[in-house]
Design a protein around this nucleic acid. Structure first.
Lengths: 143, 143
DNA sequence: AAATAAATAATAAAGATTATTAAAACGTTA
DNA sequence: TAACGTTTTAATAATCTTTATTATTTATTT
């Protein structure tokens, strides 16, 4: 989670210009608890930036990913989701409402080591996705 | 991994007819070690079934998934991959050549329990994806 | 403030997947 | 076994997400 000054510095350090759209896309993403796809991001941004286009959303998340300030998730849906937290953590999706939440505090290091020796691969990254019914949807079913 | 007789029985039990295309799609998938997407499946099947169409490949994997004899993977690419092994296991993709392999023998049960208590979700499934350089590509880099 | 280089927004294009539909194949019944 | 009714296939069109193109606008440098 970076402030505008930090993000601006990183953009410039990588040869990208600082624009209101880029700051806005990052800020919108960083402000969300769950992880939006491009459409959700666009509909949050569009009211504040009426001229914002889908192309800009896509181009911007591509750049933010390249300079390593966001990560891209794919839970098996037809669209990608974005996450402003680049630290190692995992994700869980509700099979009822579709929301994607962070899953912090899960230690995956031992499993990665095990995977490395089992596979013979030199492992550089990993993504764990869990699927289930979120607390909110559990309540709804009960009521 | 089912033989044609077993798959035929399951298809019929679910109200689907048995056709050469359905058996062929399943057999082709079950015969592969790595996990193909629709295009790879199509190009394997097309020589033997010249009239096979993409629509049939997609419709068939959808049915095979519905009757629970295959699973669908998505490593974050733009296309889905398919796996004829429906038992709980995980996957690893080579960041150099793109192949997706099985990762068997990884015990994820404890982590699922941990995720359940951390998230408050009622967890019904999970997918772990690892990314790295496969043994074949490691060799190539060295030579 | 002017120059120039890059970014935006609109639009078109591409690629994966799904929907539609006429023709063919399946399976049942007579 | 022939014929019927239904499902499936194959071809094609349509849809949806994402990427490419391009004229206009904007950010940075002088």
């Amino acid at each position: 989670m970076l402030d505008n000054q930090q993000l601006s510095d990183i953009l410039r350090a990588n040869g990208y210009k600082v624009t209101p759209q880029r700051l806005a896309v990052y800020d919108a993403l960083a402000a969300m608890k769950t992880h939006p796809n491009a459409e959700m991001l666009y509909s949050v941004l569009q009211p504040k930036y009426p001229s914002m286009s889908f192309a800009t959303v896509y181009k911007t998340v591509e750049i933010l990913h390249k300079i390593n300030v966001i990560q891209i998730l794919n839970t098996g849906e037809d669209s990608m989701r974005y996450d402003a937290d680049t630290s190692i953590h995992h994700h869980i999706q509700c099979i009822s409402c579709g929301r994607v939440d962070d899953l912090n505090g899960l230690d995956s290091l031992a499993l990665v080591k095990e995977a490395e020796s089992l596979s013979g691969y030199e492992i550089a990254g990993h993504q764990f996705y869990f699927f289930g019914v979120c607390p909110d949807c559990k309540k709804m079913v009960q009521n």
